[in-house]
């Protein structure tokens, strides 16, 4: 294992961009062989603008094809590659090497709180189960001839929570979720919020009842991990607070 070194001193703009060698510490787990996860280090040559996803691809494609992780769009919209990078939940495709301290090894492991399947892959089913439980779809009576009318300000009311890509970075950063897997978790609440505050929806009271459960919003201890983890910049903790307010005092 080596520490990171710049191969050459800073160069003028038209010279080739310098690469550097980074040590990636990846928490491996092969369910067909390993009893317990183990850390493995890989030295990878990278550009400053490379993403952690590029580093993982370089390992998989050039060193060890068995390294397993999910990815698809590679620019932060599909939500496949949430993982813990240096202890923080991030999308691997939105985390650039230049924004990490490359003088030290970069630690990469699976998100916490969901069953580990292999290397960086976890079982997403419990996460999607919680999502499905909050009735994440518009419930509205009648079939209008054209569109339902909604003012621009009513549309803006729930804009923030429409951005969710269901990557699970928030839910799997939540200490309550780590210790109590029954808790709905921030992502499910965010998706309930998206409909509770949609002026077209008629079932907010149903969702508020669901979230008033003992495993609902009251488990949130406002540690703000979720808001920090969200790769879409959703104010998750605020959304949860708004749902709590709506349960107590009605929607505003």
């Amino acid at each position: 294992m080596s520490t990171a070194t710049l191969d050459s001193p800073p160069a003028p703009a038209d010279a080739p961009i310098p690469t550097f060698t980074v040590t990636m510490m990846v928490r491996r787990f092969n369910p067909e062989v390993d009893e317990e996860p183990r850390w493995q280090d890989f030295d990878v040559e990278l550009y400053p603008t490379d993403r952690v996803l590029d580093a993982l691809h370089k390992i998989k494609w050039e060193q060890d094809g068995s390294l397993t992780f999910r990815r698809s769009c590679a620019h932060g919209v599909c939500g496949s590659d949430a993982m813990r990078i240096n202890g923080r939940n991030r999308l691997a495709c939105k985390t650039l090497m230049k924004d990490l301290d490359i003088t030290k090894p970069i630690y990469v492991e699976a998100i916490k709180g969901l069953p580990l399947e292999k290397d960086l892959v976890v079982d997403m089913e419990p996460f999607f189960d919680s999502y499905r439980e909050v009735q994440p779809f518009l419930i509205a009576s009648g079939k209008p001839e054209k569109e339902r009318i909604q003012s621009a300000s009513d549309r803006a009311r729930f804009d923030d929570t429409t951005k969710c890509i269901l990557c699970a970075a928030c839910t799997s950063s939540c200490p309550v979720f780590w210790t109590d897997g029954q808790y709905f978790g921030p992502a499910a609440i965010v998706n309930a919020h998206r409909f509770i505050f949609d002026s077209r929806d008629e079932a907010s009271s149903v969702r508020l009842d669901i979230l008033n459960d003992k495993e609902g919003v009251w488990r949130c201890r406002t540690t703000f991990n979720c808001s920090e983890a969200c790769p879409r910049g959703i104010q998750v903790t605020q959304a949860i607070a708004e749902v709590k307010q709506a349960i107590m005092f009605g929607k505003r």
């Binding site: 518009l138 209008p144 339902r148």
Partner: peptide, 20 residues
């Protein structure tokens, strides 16, 4: 097709009159 999506819940941007 657009009205179907709106009726299913798609949050389109709106005009000042509240249309898509």
């Amino acid at each position: 097709a657009v009205y179907d999506l709106e009726n299913m819940g798609l949050p389109f941007n709106r005009t000042p009159e509240g249309k898509i």
